[in-house]
Each structure stands twice: as C-alpha cells, then as structure tokens.
Design a binder for these strands. Structure first.
Length: 756
DNA sequence: TGGGGATTT
C-alpha cells in the first residue's frame, strides 16, 4: 500500500459537482461522464417506441426531471395525514384508470418505479373497488421482511389491526384470519398453497410483486397462474368473456385477476407471456441521483473504490457513503485500507467510521449499520448485494458501485450430480440502477460507477432467471406431486435439458422416482418434508436407523439460511479455542450436532424445552434461558440467528414427521454410525474417496475435490467422505464434510440403482 | 486456507 493519500493520487472522477456546470465539450475524452437517470431514459425510449401504454391519468403532464425532486414517501405519516399521504403518492393520479384497466383485463402488467407506491396502494385500490368481494387479494413478495412490513403498513393505512382485513403469511409466521381480504406473502408460500389448491380458488386477485427478480418460485407461480387463468377464466385468455349471462355467470366461473408488478426492465416479456397483456407505466418518486461513470475501466476495483471514497470524503459535503463490493474478502481489505488512510488525513477532516455488511455477520454486527452517524463523522458502509434489495440504510448520500457481484450458479453434471460455481462477475443494468437508487432515498444523491458508460450500456438487462441457475431436483419433485412435468409446464424460460436430466437422475438415485420416472411412495414422503431432496432422504433413512432426533438437529441447521460459525479474521486462534470443545473428529455434521446440543444445554433446559415457546408463554425461567443461550453463542462465535432459525425448522420438521408416522424422538445416543449412514443415504451422490496425493475423487462423477478450508476435516486424510455441496471458486471445494466408512456404500440403494 | 443474496404445511 503506497504511503501517499489516495486522494492525492490520480483521480478517477474529477470534481464532478463543479464541472457539472461546464458541459464536457472539450475535444479530449472527458475524464468523467455525466448521465441522467437512466430509469427515465429507458422509460422514455420505450414510450417513444409505442411499446408502453399509459394509464391515461398516470401523468397529467409529460414527466420532467425536476418534478422528481419532490420528497419520497414519508416513512410513517402522522395518523391524521395517512389518507392525505396516500393521495399524494405518484400512483394516486392514475388510480381510476388503473382500476378500470384491471377490471377490463384478466392480466395487467404494472411497471412501477421505486417510490411510486404501487405495492401498498394497488391492493387497497382493488379492495376499495370491490375486487375482494369474491375472494382474497394475494400479494406475493420474494422476501419475508417485505411481506411483513408491507402488511403492517397497509393495515395502518386501512385503520385495521394487522391480521384483520390486512394480513400476511410467511414461513413460521401467519397473521391472517377469516376476515382477511388483503394478504401479503412470500412467493414460496403461494407456490406451497398450489400443492393443496391447484386453482388457488381462495383468491380473486393475485398480485405478483418484484416479478423482475425472477426467483424460482415466482417463475413457477407465473406458469401456474397462466394455467389457472385458462381454467378459471375460460379460453379467451386475454379478455374476460362478456356473454349474455352477465354477472351470475362471472361468479360461477370465479374468474381470477392477475397483476404483475415489475421494475422498469423486462415488462415487455411479462406482457408477451400473458398474451400481450396491457402494460401500465407508473412514474416513481425518488430524489434525483447524479450518476458518474469512470472515464476508463478500472482493473483494481478495490483500489479504485478506495480512491473514490477519499475523493468524496475530502471534497464533498457531509453524507454517508455506501460501497458495493462482491464479497467479504474485498470488504475486509478495503475496510483496512480506508482505516489506514483515514488516520493519516490532515486535521480538520471528519472522522471516518467504517461498517462492513454481509449476510454472514451476526445480528449485532449488522445492527451497527443502523446506528445514527456521530457528529463530525462520515459513515462508510462496505456492503455486498445485501444492501441492494434486502436492507435499506438511512443516511446514504453517496454510492460507489464497483460493478461486481458474486453469483452462485449450478452446473448440472452429465452423471447426475453437478456443482455450484461461486464467481465474481459483472453486474447487470438492473443491479446498477438499483445500486444508484440507494443514494436517493432521503435526498438528492450521487453515484460513482467504477466502470465506463460503455460498460454500463453493454451490460445485460437483468439477472438470468433463477430457474436457469439452480438445481431443479426439489422443484421437480414438488411439481410431480401435483402431477406436473416441468418439461410440459409453460414457463417463461425453459431450463436446459441437462439440468432437467441431472435432476431426474438425482431423484432416481434417491429413490424418489422409479425407472419409469414415476413418483414412488418414498418420493411422495420426501416431498412432504420442507427440505431439499437430499436432506429429506436422510430424514426418512433415519427412521429405520432410529436416529431421527439427531438427523433432524443436523438437517435443520443445514437447511437454515446462514452460516453456523461466525468468523473474524483477527480472532482466529481465540475462535478455534472456543470451539474446540464441540469439534467432532468425524467431521462437520457431528460438529453441528454437538453445537446445537451445547447451545440448547446453555439455556438450562433439556433438549425438549429449549424452543422458547413450548409452554406458550414466556416465564422468567425462559427469559433467563434465552439470555444464557445468547451469551453462549456470543462466547463461542456461533451465529445465534442461524440456530434460532434451525430451531424453527426443526419444530416444523417434527410436525411433518409426526404426520408421516416417524418418531422424531428416536435417538441413537452416542452412536455415530447410524447418523452418518442416514446422511449418506441422502448424500449418495456426494461421496468421494481419497487418492494417493491426498485429494479426493468423486465416486459418482469425475471431479477431483478438495475439502474446503472452513471444514473441520480440512487437511485430514481419511479414506472416504460425504459432503453437503461442491462449490467451485478457485478449485472445486467440498463443504460440510464428514468422514465415513467405505462399508457404507454397499448398504446404499443409490449404488444398486446407479447402473440403470 | 476461504463463505453473493433470497426462500418452503
């Protein structure tokens, strides 16, 4: 690291604000490029092409840039002002036209910018217009927090208690009742409902929000909505059939209204999918964000971000800075560099407070982001994509966008098992706009892109749909249970044949499908568990091996979202010492089991009462137990968030087991083999044997794999291993590894089936 | 020696 201040080195952006007044008319290529908000440009270009139709009153005047400077939606308006506030949202002007369009069409695509108010208002407009008389209005969201927060907000606007007229439903938390007419939920929740009610007959309207994100569940939902429209609304797919029978006939048919809500890109594709459904455009209300592109491409984006940060810090007025980086490693190194240089600044400059932000951090660490910035201090948040959609940070005025993101992508293997790649790649236009928008939440902002405008223009429009990037085994198993074949489903994007055959082979090897691709009883039992097929298979195997208690404890952690073990590079020795007590020599799975048990024991309760809600009330004893567990987790660098989520999953799995006639109390005590053998039934494709050079070679598949350094089995030489997943970064790493006996192989059904 | 982000009767 050079000792010169980064702000004294060559600048990537020359004082953008001052130079803004003199347009870049010089002959030389300007060092910076100034672009107006491309949300607007894209909107206008499309409108000129005539591909977008306006709700007649969506704009009374043509949109002008300056009109955007009006404030964003108030976060929590005073009670008396709620209705006034609703009327001032950009979408309010188009209310009547919008309701009319939805009344006249089965499917409407609503293209609404950030801050338009579409997600809170459209369900209320439809409610107030009587659309919920014949069924509920369901609104889907890709994320749980969005569903709960929106429901809370809208119930306030309706002046009714949450769970009454307006409610929500997410995994582990249902707040809705017989009077609920507007229900916010995760898209996964609604796809789950499809299993029991293939026509979604409870719903009169389904609004699919954030459809542009194209999550796996959104795509499956859209395909099913198209089918449901055919079945519930009759063959005239585009328009409702207005025939002689009138309203009675309508009611009999119980027609469904579908509204697809999307950000500014890709609306055309949704429209085409739904027989050229009408697209309605609604302007957003964001503060303007001035965007600067780098004059030249930057090879070292961490160094470029460092220099740009200090350029802002030294030259620009107060306001927090949000830097988007692809991953933890870059965040840690940039944080160190910023701190190093911040201490060398001449006196008179504000302090710099760096705050890292990525999903693997503990709740307390993430919370630092939301603390108000002290006086005479500039907060610098170093974040992954978590800050792009999931978490909104107040006070941000400047965004530095490296243009990079880490993306997980499943590569299907021809032999059945594939592996994930986790590689840094360029973002797309949708990411770039979302990131820039983070600077304009509270006032006018600035976004510094560490890539050229040409690079921006050359970016893909949006992320590839998840259905093209993930393993299909679980989705296909679920579909088969309702008699649907993914290859016959009318999907917006059809997955690759390799991905489909790879999933079929996995399901066959697990015994979920027979050799005629028919669902087996075992497959049906697997699908009944809210788990990946591999984990579901392990749970079912545990029944015969009488170790369901142990397998549920392990599998619930594996299927929880976050990492179990926290990490801090500077405390490595301390962490290793704290965890030494429960590291198991057989590997990661039994280490997880030890950890879960130690955590539970730390609460003072024995295994069965440690959930915090067993008796339905919080006694003093329970409160003490909770804080003891929290302290234990902190002291052992274990992520309590993950353990709590795992605990909820385990409770849910116990219910599923009871229904399936599996005794979840069955325990094998201190024996290891039954547990590992159960897991091996699920991980039959994920086995490898050691080679003379100490690496491992897959049994099913050709890959040479290395044990991931974060595993307790790293550098251990054992004859055979099972692993949870393979991830390719620099090499193919096996993660979640346990040592097993070779004698296990002969007892696994998968090995008898694999020749088929 | 290294971990983008969601989600499920």
């Amino acid at each position: 690291m050079p000792a010169t201040l980064p702000s004294q080195k060559r600048r990537i952006f020359d004082s953008p604000i001052k130079q803004n007044k003199t347009p870049p008319q010089r002959k030389r290529i300007p060092k910076w490029v100034d672009v107006d908000d491309e949300d607007e440009r894209i909107g206008q270009r499309k409108r000129q092409n005539g591909s977008l139709k306006h709700a007649p009153q969506a704009h009374s005047t043509p949109p002008r840039k300056k009109a955007r400077t009006s404030g964003p939606p108030l976060p929590s308006p005073a009670k008396a002002g709620i209705q006034e506030h609703r009327k001032q949202l950009p979408i309010a002007k188009g209310k009547d036209a919008l309701v009319q369009e939805i009344r006249e069409n089965d499917v409407t695509v609503l293209l609404g910018e950030t801050g338009s108010g579409k997600t809170t208002q459209v369900p209320q407009y439809l409610l107030e217009a009587g659309f919920a008389d014949s069924g509920m209005i369901g609104v889907t969201q890709p994320r749980k927090v969005a569903a709960t927060e929106l429901a809370a907000r809208v119930s306030v606007e309706q002046g009714t208690p949450l769970g009454g007229l307006v409610g929500y439903g997410i995994r582990f938390d249902e707040r809705s009742g017989p009077t609920t007419r507007v229900k916010y939920m995760t898209d996964g929740m609604l796809t789950r409902e499809l299993l029991g009610d293939p026509l979604l007959s409870k719903y009169a309207v389904i609004i699919v929000d954030e459809a542009h994100e194209r999550t796996l569940r959104t795509d499956l939902l859209l395909a099913n909505l198209k089918r449901i429209l055919r079945e519930r609304n009759g063959k005239g797919n585009g328009k409702p059939q207005v025939n002689g029978k009138g309203k009675e006939r309508e009611k009999e048919r119980n027609p469904l209204k579908v509204v697809i809500m999307s950000a500014t890109l890709d609306a055309e594709k949704f429209s085409q999918f739904f027989s050229n459904a009408k697209i309605i455009y609604v302007k957003g209300r964001q503060h303007p964000v001035k965007i600067f592109h780098a004059a030249q491409g930057q090879t070292d984006y961490v160094d470029a971000a460092l220099r740009t940060f200090f350029q802002i810090h030294v030259d620009q007025p107060p306001g927090d800075v949000l830097i988007f980086l692809p991953g933890q490693e870059d965040i840690e190194s940039l944080e160190k560099a910023i701190q190093l240089f911040a201490h060398q600044l001449p006196t008179g400059h504000d302090e710099v407070l760096t705050v890292p932000m990525y999903a693997a951090l503990s709740g307390a660490q993430l919370h630092r982001t939301f603390a108000p910035t002290p006086r005479k201090t500039r907060k610098c948040i170093l974040a992954t994509n978590i800050a792009e959609t999931s978490i909104t940070i107040p006070g941000v005025r400047y965004v530095i966008d490296t243009g990079k993101v880490k993306e997980k992508r499943y590569l299907a293997g021809s032999t059945g098992g594939g592996f994930d790649t986790l590689l840094t790649r360029d973002i797309n236009k949708s990411n770039a706009m979302q990131r820039a928008g983070r600077a304009g939440r509270e006032g006018p902002g600035f976004c510094y892109r560490l890539y050229t405008e040409d690079a921006f223009l050359g970016m893909a429009a949006s992320t590839e749909p998840e259905i093209l990037r993930c393993s299909l085994a679980q989705a296909m198993l679920q579909l088969l249970c309702i008699g649907q074949d993914i290859q016959e489903l009318d999907l917006m994007d059809m997955p690759d044949v390799d991905a489909i055959s790879s999933a079929l082979r996995t399901l066959f090897l697990l015994g979920a499908l027979d050799s005629h691709r028919e669902l087996t009883d075992l497959g049906r039992a697997m699908a009944a568990l809210p788990l990946e097929p591999t984990h579901a298979r392990a749970v079912l195997a545990s029944k015969d091996l009488a170790c369901t208690a142990e397998v549920l404890d392990i599998v619930s952690v594996l299927s929880a979202n976050g990492a179990l073990f926290l990490d801090a590079t500077d405390k490595r020795a301390e962490i290793a010492e704290a965890r030494r007590k429960f590291v198991h020599r057989a590997g990661d799975h039994l280490t997880i089991l030890n950890t879960v048990r130690a955590y539970r024991a730390a609460g003072g309760a024995d295994g069965e009462n440690a959930n915090g809600h067993v008796n339905g009330h919080d006694g003093e004893e329970e409160k003490v137990g909770r804080s003891a567990r929290k302290e234990w987790a902190r002291a052992h660098f274990v992520n309590e968030r993950t353990l709590r989520e795992a605990s909820s999953i385990r409770d849910q799995l116990r219910l599923s087991c009871t229904r399936a006639g599996i005794d979840w109390r069955a325990s094998c005590g201190e024996q290891e083999d039954p547990v590992l053998l159960s897991l091996a039934h699920g991980l039959a494709q994920n086995m490898a044997l050691i080679t003379p050079d100490g690496s491992f070679k897959q049994i099913m598949g050709q890959s040479v794999v290395k044990i991931h350094p974060s595993s307790s089995m790293a550098d251990k030489k054992v004859p055979a291993i099972i692993y949870d997943e393979l991830v390719y970064t620099n090499q193919i790493y096996a993660r979640g590894v346990s040592s097993i006996q070779k004698s296990f192989f002969s007892s696994l059904g998968a090995f008898n089936r694999r020749e088929a």
